[in-house]
Amino acid sequence: MSTPAITAESITMAYGSFVVMNDLNFKINPGSICVIMGGSGCGKSTLLKHLIGLKEPAAGEIFYGKESFTKADRETRSNFLRKIGVTYQSGALFSSLTLAENVAVPLQKELNLKPKKVRDIASYKLALVGLAGFEDFYPAEISGGMRKRAALARAIALDPDLLFFDEPSAGLDPLSSARLDELILQLRESLGTTVVIVTHELESIFAIADHCLYLDVDEKTLTAQGSPKDLVENPPNDRVYKFLTRNGQSRT
């Protein structure tokens, strides 16, 4: 089997003395779509921040491919980061820049292109997320769901190898949400992108996830992982089953 894109070894995450999660072990295979799920406030966003180096684990180590990310020096780290795209839970668009300029930031940073070219790429990325024609709007002038999508356009600006999404579909209508799933599958198809998504949307999880990580808020650790189908058919514990079936209500 090929080397995993990301490996987490016994990660412990904490804010000061408040431990969020203990002893997380998982692997994310290249080209797979991995969903991080769990109850609200269990530490999904925090895990994502650890994976992209915005926070340092209290214990344990994260590997990108075979190389350690946690122990890497700044130079190596920024080389890793060059290949990833991230959307944050709150969008995190630069409020003083228009949507097109927002998408252009990574393009200008990494590529040496003429402004016209940059603009064309930005327009194309915005069109992909259904925001054609909004190039010259400022983030304050569009809706929350549109901001989410614009942030996604910025994250995929450089065709990254690895994409991290924090609740991309929260606040989106069902159609946009389905479109987003389609876009993610398409990106994986055409570019072989590895995708790590934090989401609660069961529809999305069943539609796109290859692998799920279930963070349990009470146990403070990873209590289940596997494909969503496996997890429903052979649930390793009751809580993950309830989570995936809306407390046993629906779905067969």
């Binding site: 980061l81 991230v86 944050y88 995190a92 668009l93 630069f94 990494e110």
Partner: peptide
């Protein structure tokens, strides 16, 4: 900008 995670976004954009 910090409250809006923009600083995080800058950092990960390198």
């Amino acid at each position: 900008m910090k409250a809006n995670e923009e600083i995080d976004a800058l950092t990960t954009l390198g």
